[in-house]
Design a binder for these strands. Structure first.
Lengths: 343, 343
DNA sequence: CTGTTAGCGCTTTCAA
DNA sequence: TTGAAAGCGCTAACAG
């Protein structure tokens, strides 16, 4: 093979068999209107000649690409990858591929990615907004062009026409904090993420609600909203928080697995015993918490299922007769508190 | 907007301006052969009409999709995600998108994915073979069709025509084991993965080489080749290994971060002190090892760089005049031993 | 500097 | 049951 071969196309098969391109196309489509014997002949020669359909030509002609565009804020967060795995799984079963793009936690990139998806490469879009995303005009724009959209995870504002899949963030953290209170904890600290992110707002709300409902005093000294998006800095922020803390907490509710682990690390280094002196709870439950010593009690988030649901909703939109008066679905997934050694 | 709008196309712009489609196409391409004033007019109207180029039509006509197909064995391994991040980064800078497919550790899926990529959807393919992949006919096939291919990580057999990017697995583990020996360790255990996987073979070789070179006795009782592909079972295998072990080791060299962490967990639960009683080394260094208490000494693998290199090689192939007599590049990336608290 | 025209490979009416 | 032919929206060679 010393040269790049020209690909076999329908025309080649047609010529070899002395039939028309249309018949070949129909035959390969297993169209029953083509005589069985012809169909068989076509199949054989197609195989013999090493025919491969051209996906691009098919797409142009049919107006469907069978590709789903996925935009996530970042790759290096197991939650998003797990969601993608769920999407991929469902999509594959329905003959779709996924094109993943990261918005790198930037609204500008999110917009760019979205625009590039408007160029007809994808049949629909799944998007998890960044913390920077305040305006949703770019998304509405896409929807107005008739491209189906499903949003998940961090949705600050409801977008008409798009399905939403989220988890019960407030309720989940309420339950976790309630669990600590019922264990007799008196000084429960809170560690969350950037305040702009809806999920962190909701998790904070759950904390506050539980504290109020059980008439605990809320001590601002025990509350930290991490501001960094980078592992390294998160670590530093958390270390600083516990070194400078005035009131000694007897429990910490944290808003991600990573915060939970970093908290345990810091506390262990400061000489605390977990869970004897202090309890720690994480959020997410994506594998790491189980291995740590002591293992981390977590709010378990159904990430993989979330991916599957999101894909399901999108593909359902594809099959709707009228995709513009699409009735929006808002799906709230349940979480579960997985109790381990850290509480 | 109560109906799905027909997209604006070149023809619409052309008609509105009373010029030809070709001119519009060239103008939007910023072709200097088009009069500046015409170009400007075209840009304005395109914008005003909300024109978006049709990527599919472009691809069919130009024969380029600007999409890179990536096939990885699994999503839930940070190494692969990190490589993808590197690929994505480089690709994006060069105006390519990536289509990720998981082969789910199965040769059959790998083949299927490859075949679906042969349908003209991607300009080139990046692939990390599964442990099951013994034959490379499916890959050679693709290369013979003139589709550029770059392989990385687990390559059992060199494939002519494809570039390879790997790390110095044997040397890396040699160095790690040597480090333990020089620390005065006498009973060094080895925990690796399935024997079919080339990377694990090489890492084992490095261990054996170091042990031989320093005239240490190799004790089969201290060697474990994990057979499971699932976290949960890995955990059980490692626990079993240490519970049944006859000789007490004073160090453990493990072939992945996860093995390292599971080993530490098991040892801590069995009452060992790390590093006082026993040292542990992991392989990969993808974030988790740093947080654990004690933090894990690791062979640091340049995963992100690997992704960038892989993408670079592929895109270089795109620009080669003759892609069939392509001179294969084999790139071996260096690793580094990051020393932390576990040794 | 601009227009005409012939594809790219496939799908799909319409006609036979 | 099959064929002819008109697109899908864009590119590019050629002509002017």
């Amino acid at each position: 093979m010393a040269f790049k071969k020209r690909r076999v196309k329908l025309e080649d098969i047609a010529r070899k068999l002395n039939i028309s391109i249309a018949t070949v196309s129909r035959a390969l489509d297993e169209n029953p209107r083509v005589k069985l014997s012809t169909r068989e002949k076509v199949f054989m020669t197609a195989k013999a000649m090493g025919y491969m359909p051209n996906q691009i030509a098919k797409s142009l002609s049919s107006g469907k690409t069978n590709i789903i565009g996925v935009i996530i804020p970042r790759y290096d967060e197991p939650f998003f990858i797990e969601v993608c795995r769920g999407i991929d799984n469902y999509a594959r079963e329905h003959n779709y591929k996924i094109l993943i793009s990261s918005s790198r936690n930037s609204f500008e990139f999110e917009r760019e990615n979205l625009i590039s998806f408007e160029r007809g490469l994808v049949d629909g879009i799944i998007l998890s907004p960044t913390h920077e995303t305040e305006m949703f005009a770019h998304i509405k724009n896409v929807i107005n062009k008739g491209i189906p959209v499903v949003l998940f995870d961090n949705i600050r504002e409801e977008v008409p026409g798009a399905d939403h899949v989220i988890i019960e963030d407030d309720k989940a953290s309420f339950n976790a904090v309630e669990f600590l209170i019922k264990k007799g904890k008196k000084k429960i600290a809170f560690i969350g993420g950037i305040k702009e992110k809806k999920v962190f707002q909701d998790r904070f709300k759950g904390y506050i609600d539980a504290m109020k409902q059980y008439e605990m005093t809320i001590d601002n000294d025990l509350i930290l909203h991490c501001e960094s998006l980078d592992r390294e800095f998160e670590d530093a922020e958390i270390q600083k928080f516990f070194k400078e803390i005035k009131t000694q907490p007897d429990a910490v509710f944290t808003c991600t697995d990573n915060y939970g682990l970093l908290t345990m690390k810091t506390l262990l280094k400061l000489g605390y015993k977990i869970p004897e002196d202090i309890s720690v709870i994480g959020f997410g439950d994506l594998g790491l918490g189980e291995v740590f010593v002591p293992s981390l009690t977590c709010v378990a988030q159904p990430s993989y299922e979330m991916g599957q649901k999101v894909a399901e909703l999108l593909i359902a939109q594809f099959n709707e007769p009228n995709d513009v008066n699409h009735k929006k679905t808002v799906l709230k997934l349940k979480t579960e508190l997985v109790i381990r050694d850290s509480t």
